[in-house]
Amino acid sequence: MAILALEAHRKSGLRQWKRKEATTAYLFSLPTILLLVGFSLGPAAYAFYLSGVSWNLLNSQHWVGLSNFSQIVTMPLFWTSVQNSVIFAAIVMPTQTIIAMVFAAILNQNLPARGLFRLAFFFPSISSSAVTSLMFMWIFNKLGLLNGFLLFFGVNGPDWIGDPRFALSAIMMLNIWSTSGYFMIIFLAGLQSIPQTMYEAAMIDGASGFQRFMKITVPLLKPSTFFIVVMGMIGTLQMFDQSFIISGGTGGPLNSTMTIALFIYQEIFSYGNVGLGAAATVFLFVLVLALTILTNRWLGKPIEY
């Protein structure tokens, strides 16, 4: 009897303690939850709602259902922006990942002035992207640094920013330059966790430096690679600021730098088509979600030694 009562008492005490523990936990995370709901999840839900209304910011909203979606899929400009964003992501994301990985592997060696190089490569990611965009506008200027350098080799460089064939590539270079350093740091952290013994064993077996990189470094960096590929994909598909600054907010020349995010911005804020912009936002959300799930299937599996 007594033992049973004691047991019941202990159980209820445990429950009570657990409840108390949970309350405390929620209380501690409350500020973050409030911020998340108020400034992130809430606005995101509101964007879903807006994708079904017609509104130009100054008049009153009225519900139009799915007609915003049927309207954007018939807009050539929307598909131009999708195409630009996808091309941009497809080129920038793999390039920045490979560059970051190779540079991380090099800077993980005991090189002289290693700290200086790490700083130099990381520097772009701590500078404001508005500032770096302006800097690159000077570099890509028709009479700028890059064309001066090319002229040194007898190449007459193009008008990088003014020519629709080159404007997006110019932004690609800028983006690769500015993000590779940040991802390099993540790879460097990943490299620290690879046991040194594996390299030693491989060396004893006679593996060359390149073989060690391909057979040990690359596979064992998979968790970092997964993170970088997903973050890189999201970042490149949502690229806005660099296009905005380099094209002066127009997405020009000839819509060659029009990305989905810039399209959304223009529709909502410049042209007052809030519903169309919100519909494009939902499209971008679905696109990013689907690609992230696919990447998770491909790279997200745990490593087997």
């Binding site: 127009t250 000839l254 819509n255 223009q266 410049s270």
Partner: peptide, 10 residues
């Protein structure tokens, strides 16, 4: 707005 900002220029 769109006509002035983009169509004319393009």
């Amino acid at each position: 707005d769109q006509y002035v900002n983009s169509t004319l220029g393009n």
